[in-house]
Design a protein around this nucleic acid. Structure first.
Lengths: 229, 229
DNA sequence: AAATTACTTTGACATCGGTCAAGTTTCAGC
DNA sequence: GCTGAAACTTGACCGATGTCAAAGTAATTT
């Protein structure tokens, strides 16, 4: 990893929702305990089982969090885009990282050391509250993934994913631009890549979607949902 | 549910690790915002999708948290024994409960309203820190479950469960007393009850364990672990 | 204690999704 | 723009688990 100091860490942090509402002094204190890294595509930021350094913020790029298995396979737990944080939870426990973090493209990541983070939390009720909300949100998300993995069939999981990726509007038709490879999405949905490919094929045959590379067009939101049954 | 006021809520709360280190005044303030309920076996405390009331503390008995599915099946996410808390995470989000909570035996549960909890968190850094640790811990646990469900075979999941249930000591042989029905354990491990039964049968045939009702004796810890491979 | 209900076990069978293999397309680096 | 390496697709096959059914066992109620 290459140390990077060109940008103002304070400025970057202040743009994160988590750090909104903090005083300049508080922000400066946190920024002082940060390091900014550039990581290259496929570079591992930390391994499952490593001792925790601190909380990470993705400034630019994309980071994949996954559970590695013995036979080289992996289960993707979460994708972190710009603004996403990860590795917070370990700061409050004395346990190693429960996942491996790897950049999927060249990225810039800020690390806030545990000490600094804990100090900041002690001195700011606002930050504590936001951190609690952030962890709760992650917890809900994970429960949702659990639900998908255990209670739904492959087709239902894919349909669910497409719906979650839908833009805010209510129009029956919309377009999705996949943020990652289909391999990665398959892993997130706990499917073999082949299975994802086949399910997308079936949905296309049924006239519900159109797939062109990483762009998927959903023709009819409602019909898609009812297909899952 | 039957309102219950005989016991001192303050006293019960003070026994929970989460509330250690709080002043009497703070505790009293929290206790004033609590209700204590008795729930009977099989009674549902809240449903997935309900609006959140607050945080729950199991005083006595046992509560099952699960994801219900359409066809009556369910996936058990967590079992809460005396001292366990649940439903904290919703206090920090504006979302409905992500799981259903149901008593598995006659139980006593305390509910701390969201307002009171949030106020207490604002005024106590200690409590905030403990709550962060509690949520983080839950997150880790859930990741562990995810890992088990997605990366392990049925036999590996069962062996894993037996190991996790092992007492602290290092002796090669130990006895486990299951806290719930095998049905429930099967659901936690994301197995059909029949499959759990069969796996336990195989482990018994292999001379690795002995099963008698809800008591399982592990003959050799090491051999059991190596069986998973 | 008898009766009813729920839980567990066992067997036979079905199936969803994974694995392996081969071919095709897309992408990244030069 | 080439070229080699990934990524993706498609087909054939297989196996781990789930489902269904029935019998046996434990637990709870009356």
């Amino acid at each position: 990893m290459i140390l990077e100091t060109r940008h103002s860490v304070t400025e970057i942090l202040s743009r994160q929702p988590l750090f909104n509402g903090l005083s300049d002094a508080e922000l400066a204190q946190i920024a002082a305990g940060c390091r900014e890294f550039r990581v290259r595509k496929n570079e591992v930021i930390f391994h499952k089982g490593d001792a925790p350094e601190g909380m990470h913020v993705v400034v630019m790029g994309q980071v994949k969090l996954f559970l590695p298995s013995t036979h080289g396979t992996e289960k993707v737990v979460h994708m972190c885009g710009p603004g996403s944080t990860f590795g917070e939870a370990v700061a409050f426990l004395e346990k190693p990282y429960p996942v491996t973090a790897q950049a999927t493209v060249d990225s810039i990541v800020i690390v806030i050391s545990n000490r600094v983070l804990l100090d900041a939390l002690d001195s700011s009720g606002t930050l504590s509250r936001k951190m609690l909300a952030s962890l709760s949100s992650r917890l809900h998300e994970l429960l949702g993934d659990m639900e998908a993995c255990t209670l739904r069939t492959s087709a239902q999981r894919v349909v669910c994913f497409l719906n979650q990726s839908a833009p805010a509007g209510e129009s029956p038709s919309f377009e999705i631009s996949l943020a990652t490879s289909k391999q990665t999405i398959a892993s997130q949905l706990n499917l073999a890549p082949e299975t994802l490919s086949r399910v997308l094929g079936h949905l296309t045959e049924a006239g519900l979607i159109q797939v062109k590379g990483r762009t998927i067009t959903v023709v009819d939101r409602q019909k898609l949902k009812s297909f899952a049954a």
